[in-house]
Design a protein around this nucleic acid. Structure first.
Lengths: 219, 219
DNA sequence: CAGATATTTTGCACGTCCTGCATTTTTGCG
DNA sequence: CGCAAAAATGCAGGACGTGCAAAATATCTG
């Protein structure tokens, strides 16, 4: 058993993933139809073919079933940040690290659209989702602080916290804006514009500019 | 009854406020001691001298008792933004609007410190608190969009969403950083530095700079 | 393959959260 | 005081979430 994450899922592990996926899937589908609040744990469990007790073996709360939290993503992002060539501005590093990860949003566009519908109907869940990313945000801030050459035990400092949090916020807003628009725009474009705004100090856009990058105040 | 918010609270209104305050106060105090999760609604209600049923007449959920949500704050901020002289950069307007509101944090420093302790012990609540501000964030984005001269029904656009969200994030991070530090620094300083970072495009700080504003890249 | 072992699923009981409804108490006012 | 509006309360009930022990299932060993 070298690495349980690679190459050897094993029958057991596969069944667990399947059960979890079945629960999450049932949850999202039922919620998209009836609204998350009106979908009981029993309904989800029943649709997934397990007992309600088993549901709580996989998710800590009713709401967690709709969230699709993946700890791997955070790890990958932090590693990317850590391995980025020194000297590169932190904001650019973050932009690229996230960008690599967010291809999934455009690829599995359909399931994300479903989740967007669920979130629109009960914003309370979006909040939970955000909250799930808060721990990640702190760890990301740690990674940034290390990258900027700060000792281990030292307090974080304002800047690392701020870039990590603001970058995460930029992503959330990008997703929101992308969902609000009829998705005729590529997500990558919204994402790029958002980070361009950040990099240029959030100066006011010229009146009339609908979606372009901020005015060329850069360099 | 010209305006129920001004000058004529009335005995009734005063009792309501008192009850609500008593509940919120009891909640925070008990939570600071035993942890929010271990404080039942019954305990809070009992400490405030009302029935558990009455608790739910004042707060929609157990957690809401610890949050101290004030819809007035959002309204005031939006009005400040709306009445700010035209031509001023949006980011500066937001900075000033929030700054005016945040004096309360330093004045009633003691109760905020208590709340910070509660939040440290159960971050789950901080998330709820954040969520409460999300609706505000959207309305703030609307206000910003209007200020930038955008029609009513039009979609929001990326920039208004982004500034509103990022500004709110900056505040949250400022509070976090300010709480993490032994509060020998004035909150206003952390707050100012955060917005300076935003205004200068979040460029990397020079190594060794602990807390100052970003390097004078401005102008 | 059979049996031992580890893991997962499940049922059950229990406490807490939260809501709707009817009833009682309090408040404001003529 | 007496009355109408508002608030507080008690109660019933559904849903959430957890600990525990028993049953079912997967993995390992000989």
């Amino acid at each position: 058993m070298q690495n349980k994450d690679d190459a050897a899922p094993g029958l057991r592990e596969r069944k667990k993933r399947a059960t979890r996926a079945a629960l999450a899937d049932a949850a999202v589908r039922l919620a998209a139809e009836h609204g998350a609040e009106n979908v009981t744990v029993e309904a989800i469990s029943s649709a997934a073919g397990v007992s309600t007790r088993t549901f709580f073996n996989y998710f800590d709360s009713h709401d967690d079933a709709f969230l699709m939290i993946d700890a791997e993503v955070g790890k990958r992002i932090r590693r990317t940040v850590r391995e980025a060539p020194a000297g590169l501005p932190v904001l650019d590093v973050l932009r690229q690290a996230f960008s690599a990860e967010l291809m999934d949003v455009e690829e599995r566009h359909e399931i994300w659209s479903l989740r967007a519908k669920v979130f629109q109907r009960s914003p309370h869940l979006l909040v939970r989702g955000l909250g799930a990313h808060m721990a990640e945000e702190l760890e990301l801030a740690e990674t940034v602080a290390e990258r900027l050459g700060r000792a281990e035990g030292e307090p974080l400092g304002l800047y690392p916290r701020l870039v990590a949090a603001v970058a995460a916020t930029a992503i959330r807003v990008s997703v929101e804006e992308w969902c609000a628009r009829t998705p005729d725009v590529a997500f990558a474009v919204v994402f790029r514009d958002a980070f361009d705004h950040l990099a240029s100090g959030l100066h006011d856009p010229p009146p009339g500019a609908r979606s372009g990058p901020p005015t060329g105040t850069d360099s």
